[in-house]
Nucleic acid binder design. Structure first.
Lengths: 359, 359
DNA sequence: TCGTTGAGTGAGAAGGCTATCACAAAGACC
DNA sequence: GGTCTTTGTGATAGCCTTCTCACTCAACGA
């Protein structure tokens, strides 16, 4: 090391100002591209930027935030990051935020109300300017979303219908998805279709079922209530699989015939497939299977699971855009509308035309 | 609203000081529990804390960070968050950080070197005090980790052996894992075992293979080189599945007999299972299958996949602890040791005793 | 009596940035 | 020639904390 002072202090804006021969004000205006920089001569800007680069100047985010009262961060509060469903939503958020001045601060509530509340608090303490909540169905949010609403910052929820709480939200069109499931199975010739619904209390579950019923009505298909099961209201992460497994075992025990099974979601479908396999029935030869969500697993299991794809990345992106818009308009909240995104049917190998005497 | 001034300014430390009748210095000392607070009279502390609570005082993180030169944040830089492998590591990190004054700032590089570099820069700009890199095998990190090393903050890598780069890292004991795979299959009576190795350039792959060979040598098992395949060096997220699928098709084409297959990781195993199924061979009746990692999918596919579990949450936790220790000792780096955590064999339904004439 | 020590508190100065206002010069307009 | 607007730059005042030093008072030993 040369006999420099070993202090190695950071370069400050003042250093740049001195070196470039302008005042700190001008330098600040130029480097932060404030509105006033319109008036700054082009060559001044040039010179300032060059010396800044030469000195390796990096603004101090804390000083900046302290003075400007803006954190340039948004909070992302996830119910449970281990839900594969969440990950793509996060990617959508991240991609949309990339390029904006906002940095996401991600917190995972681990399906725990207390933790959720604590992290919400923490994010507010860090002065996030906006908030995105990524919900999944396993989580009983209780009054938590009301506390979100109470914070006076633009907030939006992805993955759960929260219109009744006056919070903006973005979800898939579950009703359309349910309709598609039935339509697909019907078109393959299936008429004896079993259904495993989601927990009753869940809006998603109600809408999907409504879509299925609508198709049934329109097409004259009859959905035998004895072949409809409902997942219990448990809230542990693997409950979908377990629930699907047990519901299917239950269905098999009734000895009622069904040539296709529509599951609440992919995990439920995987549980159902396990049960069918244990009973010696193969998919899709003996029973077609449709899931919902299109989590990565759906593509990697054998047979590949035909399912209804939620446009997760797009959902995350859309929610983020709505929040950014509110932020840009310096509004204090996102409009409390429910936004529905269309699902798509993804064909894989778990569904096939009905055969045998049912054909 | 009562006719208050509508300014609704934040409560500052000064407000608390005035209300409590002490100087800002004293209030600061008490509320931030600085070393000097030892000397402050108990009842003074009490009084200050009470008025702070009464006023609803919350310290301004930016002012605090500006003055104290500490951000109370650590960066978490993930190669690809959609890798299911990462998620539990993240949970381990999060759990370990919870309760400390450090907030994680998570960034996802999307398997993109440029993005990685950009985010690293961003994190440094945000003045994170420590850094945890969560690696996966799909990512060619190039010189990136050297740039991490160049930042003078405690950094640690999870999921990749980086001891040669003089960076601390925490990984699973791949050699032991490979050994376990062979041992398990051997004990089930398998003697004709096919192997799908990971990409050659990958350390993990070399170690696992070394473990397998060691067991083979110790037990006298012969590993036929014609039944060993190597995944190509491709770097796209689903390459494991595709690679497993193709390697297995290739193996089947040779018509060489094998009663068990050891896959590089779970995704590879799932691809292999797809290929076996397409060829009319069922798992585990016709061929046992072992994966590596124990990603959630391994438990939900049918048959459930027997695999070697990486203690992912523990890996994240251990790495975080090492970083926290360095931080606590105000060191500028984590000791560049490679730390190996033991894997465990998870028994599911994809392996079974060998049968038929091979028994 | 004079330092000396320790407990307890306060004054004042940063820390690096930006917002606001003020100022200066130059052209435009009446 | 005076006023107004536009363009371009600088001075100053904080933003809210924490840190350093200094001060007071009491007790204590020499």
């Amino acid at each position: 090391m040369p006999p420099h002072k070993p202090k190695s202090k950071r370069v400050t804006l003042l250093d740049v100002a001195r070196k470039a021969g302008f005042s700190p004000s001008t330098v600040s205006i130029v480097l932060s591209e404030a509105p006033l920089s319109r008036y700054v001569a082009a060559q001044t800007k040039e010179r300032i930027r060059k010396t800044a680069a030469a000195l390796g100047y990096r603004p101090d985010v804390f000083a900046r935030s302290l003075r400007s009262r803006r954190s340039n961060t948004v909070g992302v509060l996830v119910f449970d990051i281990s839900d594969p469903f969440c990950v793509f939503i996060l990617q959508g958020i991240e991609k949309t935020l990339h390029g904006t001045p906002y940095l996401p601060i991600l917190m995972d509530a681990h399906n725990d109300q207390k933790r959720f509340a604590g992290y919400l608090d923490l994010l507010m303490e860090r002065r996030v300017e906006g908030l995105i909540v990524v919900a999944n169905w396993l989580f009983d949010e209780g009054e938590l979303l009301s506390t979100v609403k109470a914070e006076k910052i633009p907030s939006v929820v992805v993955g759960r219908d929260t219109s009744e709480k006056e919070l903006g939200s973005v979800i898939v069109d579950n009703e359309a998805g349910g309709y598609e499931v039935m339509k697909h199975l019907y078109e393959l010739g299936h008429r004896r279709i079993a259904v495993i619904r989601g927990p009753d209390s869940l809006r998603d579950s109600q809408r999907r079922w409504a879509g299925m019923q609508r198709f049934a009505q329109e097409s004259g298909l009859e959905l035998d209530p004895r072949k409809v099961r409902t997942l219990p209201e448990v809230l542990d992460p693997t409950s979908g699989f377990q629930g699907g497994l047990q519901a299917t075992e239950d269905l098999l025990r009734t000895r009622l015939k069904f040539t296709a099974l529509a599951a609440f979601d992919d995990l439920t479908a995987l549980g159902a497939m396990r049960a069918l396999s244990a009973a010696g029935r193969s998919v899709p030869q003996d029973c077609s299977m449709v899931g919902f969500d299109d989590v990565p697993m759906a593509g990697f299991c054998t047979p590949g699971l035909t399912t209804i794809r939620q446009p997760m990345e797009e959902m995350g992106g859309t929610a983020t855009k709505r929040m950014l818009d509110a932020l840009a308009a310096s509004e204090t909240e996102v409009s409390p509308d429910l936004q529905l995104l269309p699902p798509t049917l993804v064909l894989r190998d778990s569904t096939a035309p009905v055969r045998g005497k049912d054909a």
